[in-house]
Design a protein around this nucleic acid. Structure first.
Lengths: 219, 219
DNA sequence: AACGACTTGCCATGTTTATGGCATGACCGG
DNA sequence: CCGGTCATGCCATAAACATGGCAAGTCGTT
């Protein structure tokens, strides 16, 4: 594993130093540079092409959020927000802009190091209080259809899902049977199971129910 | 601050014990109970009304994901997933179903304790590798697979969509006809139009195609 | 070894679909 | 006013489907 090169964007000298220490204390990270302003950070990113940029939000010459887009456009660097701004607006807009993680500044050095490692590994470290805004979105979009719970609960078997896919693509019993190399009569039996599990009585209803429950994906 | 009461749902006795130790080692948490199956966990949640439930995904009698809805419906407990299932599908569906956090089982006891505290405090602890799936959604801006566009492009009429909805809910021609107060024979004519427009030959295929094209919504 | 599940196979019967063609009235844009 | 689309209606038929019951072999779990 090669050494990862990290850049820092924060206007507070004390915090820059703090982050610098955290980064350089780790043998597998080098500091590619640190900048107090977005303007200088642009330079840094373009010239040094770091692997990861730690970004604050409140900068003298603008918001760190606006800087994210630049980074993503000009390099392949990952972006980890480390800031004290924990409001919904900032969190969501930063992540929408392409940030790969969002840590609050009260995070311990250990958490920050973990976060850096996770980001470089393709993960997305997000402080719990920030993540809750994400969930609001996700859950808000989907108004919670809680199923009335079939008594005969419904995990379809692989075979059954396979059949539903064929039906969704328009196959008849006979065609599906040929596709799976089984008897059309067996297809009928699988269909019985599917109908029982989904509590339905036709292929149209079954396909719909399966899609709704996420047991049948579209491609 | 009163003591928080926590319940555990996990089929592995060793893990139950592990989590029990973590929870009870902390003076501000009590163990409200632990269950190896969804069935027993339902009981637990209803009777003890814990403040937080730690839930695994792979249970003998179903997926922990399906259990989330029950918890949310029957109590005000928060739900923290602690599982080794880190795949996109599971993560997203769990969080959509209402989970308040998602930690992978390789998390250290300290991380789990932090996660429990954060969840009870209204936060949403999410392991970085799981959170990356959330960001995909947010940043992906819904990539919207572009359709190859049928030559006989297909805006279904209101009537046709109406019919498809009834089919998706399992109605036969006759039933749909009664529901719409038209002749079953007319239903057949609408079906012909639908099939032509969607280029399909069965209700199953039609429902699937319509859902995929966003012309048929689920509810 | 026994139990449950998934998968496979068959029979039989009544119902429903899929698809062709043909026709009327309403309505809208050119 | 004419052409097109929409919604409505009817006839007919071969094919496919929905559903019941029955059974054997392979699993993994108990």
């Amino acid at each position: 594993m090669t050494i990862s090169r990290i850049a820092i964007l924060d206007d507070d000298p004390a915090i820059r130093e703090h982050l610098t220490e955290i980064v350089t204390s780790c043998p597998e990270y080098d500091l590619a540079g640190s900048a107090p302003t977005i303007a200088r950070a642009r330079d840094l990113v373009v010239r040094k092409q770091p692997d990861l940029v730690l970004v604050d939000v409140g900068l003298p010459d603008g918001s760190g959020v606006d800087f994210i887009g630049f980074v993503k456009q000009q390099s392949r660097a990952r972006v980890l927000m480390i800031t004290s701004f924990g409001d919904r607006e900032t969190v969501v807009s930063a992540l929408e802009a392409g940030a790969d993680g969002y840590l609050l500044k009260d995070s311990s050095p250990a958490v920050i190091l973990d976060g850096i490692a996770a980001t470089l590994a393709g993960g997305a470290p997000i402080s719990p209080s920030a993540a809750s805004y994400l969930l609001e979105r996700l859950q808000g979009d989907v108004p919670q259809r809680a199923q009335p719970d079939n008594p005969d609960a419904a995990p379809l078997t692989a075979r059954e899902v396979e059949l539903l896919q064929l039906f969704a693509r328009g196959m008849s019993y006979k065609e599906a049977a040929r596709a799976l190399d089984i008897s059309p009569l067996t297809v009928g039996n699988h269909v019985k199971s599917i109908y029982r599990k989904l509590a339905v009585h036709s292929r149209g209803e079954a396909v719909f129910a399966a899609v709704r429950q996420g047991q049948l994906k579209m491609g």
